[in-house]
């Protein structure tokens, strides 16, 4: 492509944007609203997903030892557990620690458990975390088979239900984001089609004079890119300000862990900007071809 053509295309695109103020405004608002909604959906999904990851990673297995297991046996059980594929972390909790934990959870000052019970009834135990929380039921079964392991608990039933819920939350949010992106493409395509429709006489004339399709298309592509990225920029500013103030408020109010990592947010904002440009180009592509068929 020749340089003077590129300059001509950009000039034409800018002229057209200025001339059709109302349509320019309409397209930019459509694009920014679509991308804002898309961005909100992605942010919610990101946060929900982080929350679910945290919930899932809290799932652990507790393996209780037989009461009369010796110190060396306990140590060898630890090795056996570590050898099971998928085990991330094994932590020993002695019967004394377990009692202290229980004491703490019942309230320190009300009772003195040690005094009341005289003899510690609690067994030694291991707390086990897995690499993938979804492997918990399977690994729990294998630990149960080891010698000197009396019982294994991992919140059976609740864990399975939690995983079922998180699976569906993820699927539905991906589906919703896809749907929103699809809607955004068509909304933007329609507004760009209106802009092209307003200039159909000019396009017809250009075709009859002998302009090539590419020559006619390029200014519209540039227009689409400008409209899309401008709309995206507005929505990113709104989203960033809104989310920042949400972080500040939520911090003092809730336990809900919001994503605050600037890297993750920056990636999101840049992706939204690229999405905006992409939507602009795609919208133009969908709309322009039938006007070129002269």
């Amino acid at each position: 492509m020749r340089m003077r053509n590129i300059i001509y295309f950009i000039k034409e695109a800018m002229k057209s944007l200025r001339r059709n103020t109302l349509l320019t405004f309409a397209t930019i608002s459509t694009a920014s609203i679509c991308i804002l909604i898309l961005g909100i959906a992605v942010l919610i999904t990101m946060n929900a997903s982080q929350f679910m990851n945290k919930l899932e990673s809290d799932v652990e297995i507790i393996a209780y030892m037989e009461k009369d297991t010796s110190g060396t046996q306990i140590a060898s059980i630890k090795d056996s557990i570590k050898n099971i594929a998928g085990v991330k972390e094994v932590k020993f909790v002695s019967c004394e620690e377990a009692l202290e934990n229980l004491q703490e959870s019942l309230g320190k000052d009300k009772y003195d458990l040690k005094e009341t019970l005289e003899k510690n009834p609690l067994p030694d135990s291991y707390q086990i975390k897995t690499v993938n929380p979804h492997d918990v039921p399977e690994i729990a079964k294998r630990i149960e088979l080891l010698a000197n392991v009396k019982a294994v608990t991992y919140g059976k039933g609740i864990v399975e239900r939690l995983f079922e819920v998180t699976k569906w939350v993820r699927l539905v949010s991906i589906f919703l984001i896809g749907l929103l992106a699809f809607g955004a493409i068509f909304l933007i395509a329609t507004t760009i089609r209106l802009a092209i429709y307003a200039r159909r006489k000019e396009i017809y004339l250009m075709k009859l004079i002998g302009a090539t399709d590419g020559f006619i298309r390029w200014p519209f592509f540039i227009e689409g890119i400008i409209l899309g990225s401008f709309g995206a920029a507005i929505s990113i500013v709104v989203l960033a300000l809104g989310y920042q103030s949400l972080i500040v408020r939520m911090d003092s109010l809730f336990f809900l862990p919001l994503i605050t990592g600037q890297d993750a947010l920056l990636v999101l904002y840049i992706s939204l900007l690229i999405t905006g440009m992409f939507l602009g180009v795609l919208g133009t592509l969908i709309s322009i071809n039938r006007f070129l068929d002269v």
Binding site: R2, R19, K201, L205, I209, G210, A211, F215, I216
Partner: peptide
Amino acid sequence: KLLESKTVSENVAFAMEVVGAR
């Protein structure tokens, strides 16, 4: 079929621009 938003000169120049004249 003149372009209403362009002047006489621009309408004529338009025909040359779209075929890539210098």
